[in-house]
Nucleic acid binder design. Structure first.
Lengths: 341, 341
DNA sequence: ATGAAAGCGCTAACAG
DNA sequence: CTGTTAGCGCTTTCAT
């Protein structure tokens, strides 16, 4: 239904030049084909005056590329993904791409569906924050030759590049912060088991404990999802257990929110009764009654790197097999950790 | 660079039918052209087997429509817009559209730019959460025949439809809640002056005051932006003024966050020292030290309605001039308002 | 019940 | 320095 604009053909006939010449000028190839300066400026000027815009479909059909990228996230209403996305969109736009978004709603079927959809529309590349654990569908598209980068989550034994946070190191660093403050009986509330970021974080936690010679009997690892409910349930259970922890390490902001609720319902306060530390800096983190110590993933860098890795592929620079770029996170030390002896 | 799929031409030659026949079957027009059942099923079957997918560009070029919608938001990392967007994307996908997103970064120039970009890509329609106060560029595209609906903000004297919250009514209702609890000296901290939602909310507030016969000298309206900084600055000022308010009504979640900080820095607590009420329900609203009373806009309904209004236009149902659909908001009464006498 | 052929708007190989 | 022309993959008018 879009109102049809002027075509290159009409433009040519109005100007009295051939289609080719017009096309060349409009594609910045005047120099290359030694087109007269006068001709060039005349064409440029009339094109502008008549508000000529090239028909993308004809272009894409001819060139077999769309100048379009598909981005898929598990949940765009999650600020973490929204912020990453914002940076990806900005970067891609600067490179002249329009971006399709799909929200997979944390559902692999939907993710596969979206990929097909985008492939049918001949996107020049794909940036995907994958739902989960399986990656075969991703390898499949990548093998058909579509540039691809995965973000937030990576996979083993896979050809396409990924950008993630340094989950292992930052979890370890955060744990050490707890240890330095005298905590030993620490409870880690984890997110989705088996997902790569969760595994890395858990391993970082365990490594710190190992290095400080804390016996596994001393601490606990519980939980099974990045949700408020999981955070609430586990914290409530921990607080009412025989040997409640002195500190809780939550692996996501939602888990922390659930923990907050359980702590307050149990009549306890942070950090007097219990210390709390969490992944994911949020706008409100510093504004909670007790400003929260958090680990902030660098969403700007992650987005930028994803764009770079994608553009590299599009320009024919093949990624090193299994290349995973880790972006450094940053800890915000605030008042939710109590020093004990 | 996308790996070229099989074309209708190849398909035809493999099958031994003409391109025309194949095209007809694949477009579900077998019946209409009385194509033999046998022929039809043979074509369908091979198409599926060879994994044929039509080339969208060729289709779009021929049909002059893209089955694509452009959506523009001022800030996708703002959960309010992200959630609305999520619903829009879902609805549009169900109608077979792919959706381009643009983030205007609260900048009208960028918004105009994105519109041009999307128009050049011949989107079949546009959903825009406009940055601001001017709407001439919107009227312009709409006049060229591109279906358009604006969301969150509406404009006067404009032909395209809009969906917003019932800002006036919900602000009035919220104010009355404060009044019923005995508050008179209320400070309203507003957002972007002159923007339609802000104006409506301020007017709702004033109307409530009028109906309760509260003289304008009693209350105050301050502030000039939907930001944390504005919330902090104004609250700090109010708390240290000669006649501090007993309640603050914040017109956005960010303003409330700033207020929270100022209140805590001044050594005061909610609701003992001061009551607080705010627009925008957030994941953390109920988890703050004092669970916050909020006004939640119905983002699901807003998104769905925007999709409906757009599809209506695409299907040729012209919108009533100046039609603005208002979606009802909902108040969450929690513990941040103190009853005083 | 099926096909031939034109044409959507553009680029690029080939031809001066 | 500029032009002619083929063809990208599809839909559709006109023929048969």
């Amino acid at each position: 239904m879009t109102k049809s604009n002027i075509s290159i053909k009409e433009l040519a006939s109005i100007l009295g030049f051939s289609i080719t010449t017009v096309s060349r000028v409009l594609n910045g190839k005047a120099e290359q084909y030694r087109i007269k300066k006068e001709t060039e400026s005349k064409i440029q000027e009339t094109a502008k005056r008549l508000n000529y815009t090239p028909n993308q479909f004809a272009r894409s059909l001819k060139l077999d590329k769309s100048e379009t990228i598909g981005v898929i996230v598990p949940d765009i209403s999650n600020p973490f993904f929204a912020e990453i996305f914002k940076n990806i969109e900005r970067g891609l736009k600067q490179h002249g791409y329009a971006v399709f978004v799909g929200d997979s709603n944390d559902n692999t079927e939907l993710e596969i569906d979206l990929i097909k959809h985008f492939v049918a529309r001949k996107v020049d590349g794909l940036v995907i924050a994958p739902v989960g654990i399986s990656s075969t569908h991703l390898s499949q598209v990548f093998k058909t030759g579509i540039p691809l980068v995965s973000i937030d989550r990576s996979f083993k034994n896979v050809d396409f590049p990924a950008v993630t946070s340094n989950n292992f190191d930052s979890a370890k660093e955060a744990t050490i912060e707890l240890l330095k403050n005298g905590h030993r009986n620490i409870a880690l509330i984890q997110g989705l088991n088996q997902s790569q970021p969760n595994t890395d974080r858990v391993n970082g936690f365990i490594q710190a404990m190992k290095e400080w010679d804390i016996h596994p009997d001393k601490y606990s690892i519980v939980g099974e999802g990045f949700s408020i409910e999981n955070g609430f349930y586990q914290t409530d259970r921990l607080l009412n257990s025989a040997n409640p922890p002195t500190a809780i390490f939550a692996l996501s902001n939602l888990i922390a929110l659930g923990a907050l609720k359980a702590i307050s319902q149990n009549g306890q306060t942070i950090p007097n009764d219990i210390s709390l530390l969490t992944f994911d800096e949020q706008a409100y983190s510093a504004f909670l009654n007790t400003p929260m110590t958090t680990i902030e993933q660098n969403k700007v860098e992650m987005g930028n790197m994803a764009v770079k890795l994608l553009i590299d592929q599009i320009c024919g620079r093949k990624p090193k097999i299994g290349s995973i770029v880790q972006i450094h996170s940053k800890m915000h030390l605030r008042e939710s950790i109590k020093k004990i002896n």
